[in-house]
């Protein structure tokens, strides 16, 4: 429907409509960002205050909380830790399937995808009890293990699609020179595939950072990441909307920027290569 026919009136309508919708969709985030710079009184004033002296007080308050740094650290540790671990498992597997495919390769890939279909709530009870027995409840390690496992199929798939696009001739040349499969992987393929590995890693970080089913169920304080910290603001005692907003803004800003930068790759990762 994108008409290139010069119809200025139509173009004006499209521009207005597209911008109105974009602003409406984005509005809750904008409003939250605005509230983060208000005082608590301004945050709940009716009618809402639009003109106010911005303050950084909320950010200072949130950061000054004795345990804030721990939540941030936990989020960073679980999302980057699980991503690195998933990559360590997935890179050899994707390499093997992309460059040495066998008859079983397609079904292995599909089987990996199917593990992603397990609804987390179906295995919540045994995982909870298992973690309780093993002392993994409310620990970063426990969450990191779960995130590695839930992201591993996506990571394998994305790497597989990237590796398929690497020209085989380069690896072929290496083989002629006598490179062994491991040398081929580390010396030839990985340097070529850095962009693909990076965007796979980014998707995995985004998904882990925002994951809220396991983090709410398996952690409470020591091992809790930011998703669980934000959820603690839902208690009805007291209205700390300005602090909630400040904490939320700090929690989502980095991932929003990363997501915006890598939206293209996200599409193929999230759809297992079915839409590119």
């Amino acid at each position: 429907m994108s008409t290139s026919a010069p119809n200025p009136q139509r173009k004006t309508w499209i521009t207005v409509l597209a911008w109105v919708i974009a602003i409406l969709v984005f509005f809750p985030i904008f409003w939250m960002a605005l509230t983060a710079f208000k005082t608590e009184t301004e945050a709940i004033s009716t009618p809402p205050s639009l003109l106010f002296a911005p303050t950084l007080e909320n950010f200072n308050d949130v950061i000054a909380r004795s345990n804030y740094a721990r939540f941030v650290w936990n989020s960073i540790a679980v999302s980057f830790g699980s991503t690195l671990l998933a990559l360590a498992f997935a890179i050899p597997a994707a390499y093997a399937m992309a460059f040495f495919p066998t008859k079983r390769t397609p079904s292995t890939l599909l089987w990996m995808l199917s593990t992603k279909m397990m609804p987390p709530v179906g295995v919540l009870i045994p995982i909870y009890l298992l973690f309780k027995t093993l002392g993994l409840l409310d620990t970063v390690t426990g969450l990191l293990i779960i995130y590695t496992l839930i992201n591993l199929p996506i990571v394998v798939w994305m790497l597989y699609t990237y590796f398929k696009d690497v020209p085989g001739e380069i690896l072929e040349a290496g083989r002629v020179d006598g490179a062994k499969p491991m040398q081929e992987l580390f010396l030839l393929l990985l340097p070529l595939a850095v962009p693909g590995i990076a965007s796979t890693g980014l998707l995995s970080v985004i998904l882990s950072w925002n994951e809220a089913f396991w983090s709410l169920n398996l952690t409470s304080s020591q091992g809790a990441p930011l998703t669980a910290f934000i959820a603690s603001f839902s208690s009805p005692q007291g209205l700390f909307w300005a602090k909630l907003s400040a904490a939320s803004l700090m929690a989502i800003a980095p991932i929003l920027v990363v997501g915006w930068m890598s939206q293209r790759q996200l599409v193929s990762g999230l759809t297992f290569g079915a839409v590119k």
């Binding site: 984005f26 409003w31 939250m32 925002n210 809220a212 603001f233 929003l256």
Partner: peptide, 18 residues
């Protein structure tokens, strides 16, 4: 596309409260 990158607990609380 921004709302997709907002963690679920933040989205829910922003809507619920603000």
């Amino acid at each position: 596309i921004a709302p997709f990158f907002v963690m679920p607990t933040v989205s829910a609380l922003v809507w619920k409260n603000m």
